[in-house]
Design a protein around this nucleic acid. Structure first.
Lengths: 192, 192
DNA sequence: AAAAAAAGAATGAACGTTCATTTTTACAAA
DNA sequence: TTTGTAAAAATGAACGTTCATTCTTTTTTT
C-alpha cells in the first residue's frame, strides 16, 4: 500500500478539475475560481501548488504528456520488426486516445492553441523519439517511403486525434473493427 | 470597377484584425480593444457591425470557411473520375492551407477549440458535401476502401492541417515535391 | 439641417492574485 | 493518553486590473 499525502490528493483534484474545465471551455475561459470550486478548494490554495495560472497549465500538460508517452511505448521493444513495432505503437496511441478521452482531449487542445509555453511544448515533442528512430530504421530497410518524420506523423498518428474528436462529439463510434481498418489506412499511407 | 463602401472597408479591417490577433493569442486572450486598435477604429464601432464578441467570431469563421470551401472545389467537376477529382480537391485544399496561412490557421483554431458556437461549426461541415459524395461514388465503383467519410477525412485531409501547423512553426518546409509525396500518402491510405 | 456613422469616456462585472486570519497537523512534554 | 504549541496548510475576503459593452457627444455624410 502506497501512502498518498493529503497534499497530493488536493493537487490531483486540481489537475483533474483543470483538465475537465479546459476541455469544456478552453483555457482562457476557465477561471481559477471555477477550478478551485470543482476541486473543493479555496482559490488561494491553488497558489500553494502552482506559481500561477500559466504554470498550472504547463505542469498539467507535461504530466499528461508523460502519461501519454509512457502508454504509447508499452510493450514496445526496439528489437521488433519495423511493421510489428509500428503496429504496437500505433495501437497503443489509438487505445489511449479512445480510452483516456479526457487526457487525450486536453493534449489535443494544448497542441492546437497558444495556451502552453513554447518551451513546454518542445519538451513534449521529445517523448516521441523512439517512434522517430523506428521510422528511420524503416526507411533504411526499404520498408517505409522516404518521408520526413513530420509527414509520417501527419498521416499515421495525427488522424487518430481527429477520430477521437468526432467520436467525442457523438458523430461516430470507433469500435474494434473500425480501429483495425484505420490502422491499415495508416500503414498503407507510409509503407513502400 | 466594383464600388466598395467605406463601411465595408471598416468591416474588412475588423475581420482581418480578428484573424491576426486570434491566430497569435487565441480567441479569449484577444480583447475587443486590441481588435479595434489594429483596425484603426473605436471599440464602440465594432458593435455597429457585430452584435458582440461571439457574433464576431462566428461571422468571421463562417466567412473564412466559405472562402476555403469555394477554393477547395475550384476546377472540380463531378464528372471527373474518382481519382482525378480527389486529386484536384486534395491539391486545392493543400494549396489553400499552405498559401492562405492566416485563414487556414484561423480555421484550424476554430475547429480545435470551443471558441465557435456548435451551430456555426455544424454549418461549416456542410460545405464539404461534394467531397463526401465523391467518396461515396469511389466506394461504389470499388476504387476506395469501405471507410466512413470521417476516416477518409482523417487520413487524407486532416494531415494537411498538421503539416501547415508545423511549417508555420518553422519546423519544416513543404515544397512542391514534398506536396506530391504527401498526396501519394493520402491516396495510398484510402485507395483499394 | 437632419440622419448616419464613429468616437472616447464611462460602467459594471469578472478575473488573477495576494493578504490577513483561521484551521489543521505534527509532535514534544507532562 | 492528554495537553500545549509552533509550523504548515488552507481559507475567504479584498485588491487592482482588465475586459466587454453601453452611453453621450462629436464628426461625417446626405
Amino acid at each position: 500500500m502506497k501512502a498518498i499525502s493529503k497534499s497530493q490528493i488536493k493537487r490531483d483534484a486540481l489537475v483533474k478539475a483543470t483538465i475537465c474545465l479546459v476541455n469544456n471551455n478552453g483555457f482562457h475561459a476557465t477561471p481559477m475560481s471555477k477550478i478551485a470550486k470543482m476541486a473543493n478548494v479555496s482559490p488561494a490554495t491553488i497558489y500553494l501548488y502552482f506559481k500561477n495560472k500559466q504554470d498550472l497549465a504547463n505542469q498539467v500538460y507535461m504530466e499528461v504528456k508523460a502519461e501519454f508517452s509512457s502508454f504509447a511505448f508499452k510493450d514496445y521493444d526496439p528489437g521488433m520488426s519495423v511493421e510489428e513495432g509500428f503496429q504496437k505503437i500505433w495501437m497503443n496511441i489509438a487505445t489511449f486516445k479512445l480510452r483516456e478521452v479526457d487526457h487525450a482531449l486536453f493534449l489535443s487542445q494544448c497542441d492546437n492553441t497558444p495556451m502552453i509555453d513554447e518551451e513546454s511544448r518542445q519538451q513534449g515533442l521529445k517523448h516521441l523519439e523512439p517512434l522517430v528512430e523506428l521510422w528511420e530504421r524503416g526507411k533504411k530497410e526499404g520498408i517505409l517511403k522516404p518521408l520526413s518524420p513530420f509527414v509520417l506523423y501527419a498521416f499515421t498518428i495525427y488522424p487518430i486525434t481527429f477520430l477521437m474528436n468526432i467520436e467525442n462529439g457523438g458523430l461516430c463510434k470507433v469500435d474494434e473493427q473500425a480501429l483495425e481498418k484505420a490502422y491499415v489506412a495508416a500503414w498503407d499511407s507510409i509503407k513502400l
